[in-house]
């Protein structure tokens, strides 16, 4: 009827759409994934491809089945697939990646209502599922392909699990920084992680509160416990988890204060698992546990409304 569109204000919107953010996050994870492939060889690439493909196909199929708008193009399934693959040891069989992605998307994401509704980070829950179901495959680490012997080794964390977090004799801190060590595909090359994270921070898609608080908490606690600050923050999946998974928007608190608290909780739990737990690494479980605490944190960190007295 009317010639002109009527809609509520505001009439202009910022450029950042959900899709744009998601694809930028994909771009930010890519350096890490590529570094993983460079370090561990072509099998890692197959794992990444299989994981992403399985995630996307699962999401598309379930969208069809549940008669919901298919949201594959928003890139969130691609992120889940990529993150999951980065959390796998480079030598894992391809079917592990496929099953993990399927579990992550179908059960952790879609069963809870799809994008924006999931309680747990799908990639991490997928990894937890794989870890519980096929522990042998998930803890057989591969050495970087430049190393002379192809004998599988443990992650640096597991190596000196006895005197946890003491300065590792091998590999050197520099090796750990550039990724010359055993571990998951995505967690080894810290420099690539920092490049991607720096990009996201610069773009404003992730905020520094969670990752920085998380990393500092682990580092300081380890130092207090007699370990090395730098070793503890470079080791394991801490960098990767802090920048790419503890910052997942859906499963973390809304307010800056809540996000910092989330990081603190993750740090304490990670340290506790590393120090006293049965697993060598605690990043993924600490983030999952804090995911569950997110609604409580949200309630706890409600901000004072402008013009109201502090409650």
């Amino acid at each position: 009827m009317s010639m002109y569109t009527i809609s509520p204000a505001p009439h202009i919107k910022s450029k950042d759409s959900t899709n744009r953010i998601m694809w930028f996050v994909v771009a930010a994870i890519l350096p890490t994934a590529i570094a993983g492939v460079w370090i561990f060889g072509p099998h890692a690439a197959w794992l990444i491809l299989a994981s992403v493909a399985a995630a996307v196909l699962t999401e598309a199929a379930l969208g069809r089945l549940m008669k919901k708008p298919v949201t594959v193009t928003d890139g969130s399934a691609v992120i889940t697939g990529l993150l999951l693959a980065c959390n796998l040891p480079a030598g894992a069989p391809v079917w592990i990646a496929v099953l993990g992605s399927f579990f992550a998307i179908a059960i952790v994401k879609c069963a809870f209502g799809g994008l924006g509704k999931n309680i747990f980070n799908p990639a991490l829950a997928g990894r937890a599922f794989l870890m519980l179901s096929w522990p042998a495959h998930m803890t057989t680490w591969q050495n970087p392909r430049f190393w002379p012997d192809v004998v599988s080794s443990a992650t640096p964390l597991a190596k000196n699990a006895v005197e946890i977090m003491g300065p590792g004799s091998k590999p050197s801190l520099w090796d750990m920084f550039i990724g010359n060590r055993g571990g998951c595909i995505g967690e080894v090359c810290v420099i690539a992680i920092l490049v991607g994270a720096g990009f996201l921070l610069y773009k404003g898609y992730i905020k520094w509160y969670t990752p920085i608080v998380y990393i500092l908490t682990v580092g300081i606690l380890s130092r207090l416990a007699g370990g090395s600050f730098i070793f503890s923050i470079l080791a394991g999946g801490l960098m990767f988890g802090a920048f790419f998974m503890a910052t997942d928007m859906v499963t973390t608190p809304l307010t800056p204060g809540g996000q910092a608290l989330f990081g603190l909780g993750c740090g304490i739990i990670t340290f506790a698992i590393r120090k006293w737990g049965g697993y060598p690494e605690g990043v993924s479980y600490s983030i999952l546990i804090m995911n569950a605490a997110t609604p409580m944190i949200d309630r706890l960190t409600k901000r004072r409304v402008f013009g109201k007295k502090k409650r």
């Binding site: 809609s7 928007m249 499963t251 973390t252 901000r303 402008f306």
Partner: peptide
């Protein structure tokens, strides 16, 4: 400039929380 958009779903990114001048 005044494009029409379809409403998506909230991904809890917190952009609105950071933008709100009334907290």
């Amino acid at each position: 400039i005044a494009g029409e958009y379809n409403e998506g779903v909230c991904i809890r990114c917190g952009a609105c929380v950071r933008a709100c001048p009334m907290y």
